[in-house]
Design a protein around this nucleic acid. Structure first.
Lengths: 224, 224
DNA sequence: GGCTAATAGTGTCCATTTTACACTAAATGC
DNA sequence: GCATTTAGTGTAAAATGGACACTATTAGCC
């Protein structure tokens, strides 16, 4: 069975950047290609659009198929750019719509599948050489990710609570913001802003370990 | 002659929002469709991607073909979103990569062509019903346009000088900002910000007409 | 020429936000 | 108990943003 058209058509794919914080570093989920071209090289998960699915549906499906990511039916995929340079794919003209998302990595079960030999997290500052133009896509996506936690856009900054455990210390919250924004923040200024922006509730519990124990908080709701 | 593929493929198009300020209103360039579907209705200029051209090249070409826009080989097209809902085009599955640009309208010669019966400017607040999902695209593009002149992003605000004549009064500059941002600005605050942000040179010339003549300035360069 | 209408031009003050900055407190490990 | 590690706490200065009202100079009309 084959499909005929009067004019040539490019293929359309979606690619998905899955960011997470693991081991106090910003990491990204990559898959190892099981087939040519770029066999055995690492790449962003993604694949061909089906005729009966929307772009974001395609992105979610490919993510599931290639990385085994489940239970995150509701993970918010943000479309950020579409790549279409003439020679970006040696198999033929391919247009790729790129998405990113930010997830709590401990909620993900990652596995390799048929299309992808293996799926693994890589720290963003220690990436392997990537297939196609995927290095460029990662760079662009990273820039968009930082905008998520722009303090100007408080609403979107709420995503950080998904990355934090149900109860967390202010230092842990600060670390998450620092990693996403890629810069150190002043402790007192951060705490002032953070506890002024959201309503927090002390749990009475504390952390343990070296150094003074930290109070643990729970998010109640966003402050008007 | 026809093209065969193992799997079905969507069509890929680009659509371009051309914004300009005409008659002190934000306007957009539309074309009247000469063929079905949506024959005779107004639509955003755009068309099918060719296999040997990049996305932005396609956008520029379609713009030229459908609206007769010339000499603006260098107009900066900004990609802002890709639309791919399953039923957005009755002719079949179509993915559209949308761009916008902001141009000085008096530099454009607009004409209708074969694909498009007619090309005309419409005030953004008085648009006809548009073909396909183009109303939505215009809305989205308008939101992105406003970001261009966010005072936070001074660099991009530089585009306003392309909309102004070589020498301009501060009031004219203010009007341009007000139209693009969609809100009135305080005269003294605007002038403080504007002349603090860029280095201006008085030309010695003034405007004429009703009211006190305004001094004309020339842009020297952006202030660090 | 004198009036009216229209537009240009000009500073200050207050409120808010942002940034810089250093010491004490409570735990762990040796 | 001592060294190390991390948590916790407030103030002052600077920068920014927003509000606000009157005088100056022209055109047009009578």
């Amino acid at each position: 069975m084959s499909y005929k058209y009067k004019h040539p058509r490019p293929s359309v794919t979606t690619d998905i950047l899955v960011f997470s914080i693991r081991n106090k570093r910003l990491q990204i989920l990559l898959v190892q290609r099981g087939i040519e071209p770029f066999k055995d090289q690492w790449a962003i998960p993604g694949g061909f659009l089906k005729m009966d699915e929307d772009l974001s549906t395609c992105a979610a499906r490919e993510l599931r198929e290639e990385t085994g990511v489940t239970d995150l039916a509701s993970l918010p995929l943000t479309q950020f750019h579409t790549y279409g340079a003439v020679n970006r794919d040696p198999r033929g003209r391919t247009i790729s719509v790129a998405f990113f998302t930010l997830v709590p990595s401990d909620q993900l079960t990652v596995r390799g599948t048929s299309d992808a030999r293996d799926a693994r997290w890589f720290p963003l500052d220690d990436l392997p050489i990537l297939a196609f133009d995927h290095s460029r896509i990662v760079e662009d996506g990273r820039a968009n990710l930082a905008r998520l936690v722009d303090p100007e856009i408080v609403d979107s900054a709420k995503v950080v609570f998904d990355l934090l455990p149900a109860t967390f210390s202010l230092s842990e919250a600060q670390t998450v913001f620092e990693i996403l924004r890629g810069e150190k923040l002043d402790k007192r200024n951060f705490r002032k802003w953070f506890s002024g922006t959201w309503t927090l509730q002390e749990t009475g519990e504390t952390t343990r370990g070296p150094g003074r124990p930290a109070l643990l908080y729970r998010l109640v709701h966003k402050t008007a």
